[in-house]
Design a protein around this nucleic acid. Structure first.
Lengths: 388, 388
DNA sequence: TATACTGGTGAATCTCGGT
DNA sequence: CACCGAGATTCACCAGTAT
């Protein structure tokens, strides 16, 4: 399991397979459940046509980072500045994308489908290229991260998600696998949505080198791959990953009773992935119904009440005994006597305390009575519950 | 308010404005707070350069030239499965996208930013075109729908989100507005993420025609626009919407004390939007005050504390744990063990770091407790505020 | 043994004004 | 344009150590 296949050997082996006639004669093919060492496009071109069921691709994102970035405590952010992520221009990136996607399409069965993950740096280019090559987009899927890295300089929104595109090889190809009922059953009997919530990969799941440092800079969480594979493959299918990296795709495929093929250039990554996959124990048939992921959290912030019109800008809030009052502003902050801030900060400030729960401290007029604004949060929450 | 401006009249008016010299002579310009009737690109080309603060665009995502909206509907999918036609229509869509984005960039101030919303049918092409035109993507934002349309056929994931791209006009343009502190305060004191949760627009907010049918097929919720506008504009800014439709952008901009400009071809939509905007009551100045953080405070240099006697030459400063100490000198520098410099440089040096905020690092004795010298800066600032 | 505290870190296109 | 220096800026989670 997880043996390494130098590209030259692969070519000879595929040739010999084809000489023996129909594929079933030599099933499983020599390259199944191996990591092919070599360039992504060359390796894809060495594989037989229409031979894999799905492709999961995590290509370089082409990040364009300025200098170094420090956290507020002055510690250095360990950025992805590897050579393999550098491209000279958008044109170069597009040519690369086109080449590997074309090679993927030849290898993919007509009944197969392809997943590509990326961030705003590259995903729009990937998506447009997929369409240009007449792939047919089935969904874009949002991986919402429970614990993303913050924006340290406060100049943008916290980049809290990545995007996956799921596509079939052409508009006419309707035979792709989609385990709708299993997903629905696993999702409390409602349809699986296009936004998924998972933590990023760290802790014991994160592969570490002998130096204790992360073995790969962009290791994806197994839960994410598990949902992808459970959604769009059947047991025994072949899952190809042309940018194998730390081998998450292979590890999850093996665990879920699927075959894998990885393509990877760097020996260090191949070594880490081989050892990792060797340690994986496939699940029994009965256990293959898992991974519902995290239930969507029901955090409701104060600005949601303002944006939804339950609280209006200009409205006056008071504490339960009407000793303090504050005015709601359109930006979702509250103001009182020259001071302004969040419901929590201002509640603390007017009382001269360090902290305060603004949800229970501030009240609004409801007819003749005062009610805590927390009551309105309950309204939002029950709306959300109905919706989900 | 919300008067309609035929394109021919607009051209004459802008010409006459420019003859009068500086913009302040004719402010607000004739085209502000109006709906320009006409083709999107022609209307944009008639507006002055660098004249609007942000652009919010909800472009059509029909990939056919005919103008019918593309929906993920089986019959329409079948209609475009000819590969050549499909490629031709992508090209046409790209040319259209390029044209209106270029026209937008000329009209946008260098300190402005642009938002574009779309779904997987068009957003990848829009994003790639933005990058090709050297717009600089700041974030992609996911609008998660609480109540999306179900997927009836059970062949895909429920399409439960749309994507917005937020971009500045170039990588070098750093002056865009982002009300980070207000967003954070409104979000229970944690920074705002890139995934936003809102219901789709229905119920009483949804504009209906006399026949009781929806007036516009893709009316966006006001809450979504409110967050966009509160995040990236200041009161009094001009918000341009080149695909005005039912006028959500104009209605929210007016309510939030911003100016708007809409461009729309169809008279029915113009009529609906005009009436809608006319009924909007703008909020007052107090409600529209945007919370700001330290970055917006007046600068107070350390030597001001020394000159005003709040800190005395010879006084000893330490860090919070009394591991490092420094002596204040009369010129407003501090010295420690042969080294000297600004509070920031010396703070960095004693810790062996590249940078340090001396205001929060250095403390002074106040009775038995240590307080950061930043507390004294607040004293100066409140004195300054009283003096005004 | 349980709890509290400290330190580390993750695909990041992350300041701004003056000279 | 470049360069310089002031000084502003983080969330969730895990692991290891101290109480």
């Amino acid at each position: 399991m997880a043996s390494v296949f130098p590209l030259a050997d692969l070519k000879a082996s595929v040739k010999s397979d084809s000489r023996q006639g129909s594929r079933s004669d030599s099933w499983p093919a020599s390259w199944v459940d191996t990591i092919i060492k070599g360039d992504c496009v060359s390796a894809l071109e060495a594989l037989p046509s229409h031979s894999v069921d799905i492709i999961f691709a995590d290509p370089p994102y082409n990040l364009q980072l300025g200098g170094t970035l420090h956290r507020p405590d002055q510690s250095l952010v360990d950025a992805v500045d590897d050579e393999w992520d550098q491209f000279a221009s958008f044109e170069a990136y597009d040519a690369f994308t086109r080449a590997w996607l074309l090679a993927c399409r030849r290898v993919l069965k007509p009944t197969g489908s392809i997943w590509v993950i990326g961030s705003y740096h590259n995903i729009f280019r990937v998506g447009a290229t997929l369409q240009d090559l007449n792939f047919w987009i089935l969904n874009d899927i949002i991986w919402r991260k429970t614990n993303p890295m913050p924006n340290f300089k406060g100049r943008r929104f916290q980049n809290a998600h990545e995007t996956m595109i799921w596509a079939s090889p052409s508009a006419k190809a309707k035979g792709y696998t989609f385990n709708y009922d299993a997903l629905k059953a696993a999702n409390d009997d409602v349809q699986m949505r296009s936004d998924w919530l998972f933590p990023i990969c760290n802790g014991s799941e994160r592969l570490k080198g002998e130096d204790g440092k992360k073995a790969h800079p962009t290791q994806k969480p197994e839960a994410l791959l598990a949902r992808v594979i459970m959604a769009s493959t059947k047991p025994g299918d072949i899952v190809l990953d042309p940018f194998f990296g730390s081998g998450t795709t292979g590890a999850v495929a093996k665990r879920l009773g699927r075959h894998f093929v990885g393509i990877e250039r760097e020996q260090d990554y191949i070594d880490a992935a081989s050892a990792r996959i060797a340690a994986v124990e496939p699940l029994g048939k009965a256990e293959l119904t898992v991974m519902t992921g995290k239930k969507a959290e029901v955090r409701v912030a104060f600005n949601v009440l303002v944006e939804s019109g339950l609280i209006n800008p200009g409205q006056v809030l008071t504490d339960a005994k009407r000793r303090y009052s504050a005015i709601v502003r359109a930006d979702g902050t509250v103001a009182s006597g020259g001071e302004a801030g969040s419901i929590h900060r201002l509640g603390a400030k007017v009382q001269g305390l360090d902290a305060c729960n603004g949800w229970t401290f501030w009240h609004f007029e409801d007819g003749q009575s005062l009610r805590p604004i927390d009551d309105l949060r309950s309204v939002i929450r029950s709306d959300l519950a109905k919706a989900e």
